[in-house]
Structures are given as C-alpha cells and as structure tokens.
C-alpha cells in the first residue's frame, strides 16, 4: 500500500520546483565556477567579514541568487561586481580596486620588500671577498 502511494506521489510530483539559485549550482559547470569565484570575493553585507558564498544570512542568499542568475544570463563576473559596487560601494568587494585610496595596500608591501632587500645586502658579506 505504502509502495503504491509512493509511486503515485512520485508521478504526481512535478519536476523539482522553479530553480532557486541561492543554494543551487548552475547547470553549466563553467558558469558555476565563475559564479563561485565571484561569490567568494563579495562580502556579505549583514555578516561580518564573510563572503556571500559562506553565509546563511538572507541577504547573502539573495546576492548568491542574483550572481548566479546574472552569470547564467551571460553577464561577465566583472559586470556583476560593478553592478553591486555601484549600489553598495567598494565595501562589498573583497577584491580592493586599484586607485589612489587603495594604493598604500600595494605600495607598503613593496616598500617592505625593498627594505628587506636593503637590510639583507647591508648585512651580508660578499662571498669569497
């Protein structure tokens, strides 16, 4: 009896409901890969420091859906990122853009590297002498 019921239910049930890409991979693995790479670099607005790809918050879910839908529709990851940056500001992107304000992020490490090189050459004896 139960078996019959199960069969009936299986037949009645529609193919899985409308897609909800908030928690569902895209059918095309290439696109899904792009989407994940993008989601890993978008910051969840209501969480603290996590990317949207790793959060249970509603808004993170919504953004994942948005990202997947737009990628599926053929938008480039950069276009989707810009769309969000235009609304939420640079804050939402975990990948800081290069401009005057973010320059120290790159310059200070370079300076540190140069300083390290200078220190090294000052203290090292020439080989062989």
């Amino acid at each position: 009896m139960r078996f019959i019921l199960a069969v009936v239910l299986l037949c009645v049930a529609q193919p899985v409901l409308a897609q909800d890409y908030a928690e569902e991979s895209l059918p095309d693995p290439k696109q899904e890969e792009q989407a994940i790479a993008l989601m890993d670099t978008l910051r969840c607005v209501v969480c603290q420091g996590q990317p949207i790809s790793g959060s249970n918050a509603d808004l993170a879910r919504d953004m994942r859906r948005l990202v997947r839908e737009r990628i599926e529709a053929g938008e480039s990851p950069d276009a989707v990122r810009n769309w969000l940056v235009n609304r939420y500001g640079q804050w939402i992107s975990l990948k800081p853009s290069m401009n005057e304000q973010t320059a120290p992020l790159w310059i200070i490490p370079l300076l540190a590297l140069a300083g390290a090189g200078a220190l090294y050459s000052r203290r090292a004896k020439r080989k062989g002498r």
Binding site: A22, V46, L59, R61, D62, R65, L66, N86, R87
Partner: peptide
C-alpha cells in the same frame, strides 16, 4: 521576493 528590489536600491537591511 528574493530581495531583488532591495539589492537594486543598495539597501542592506
């Protein structure tokens, strides 16, 4: 539904 309007405003909560 799905926060689409909210995201297009840039609203966070």
């Amino acid at each position: 539904q799905g926060g689409r309007a909210q995201m297009s405003f840039g609203s966070a909560g």
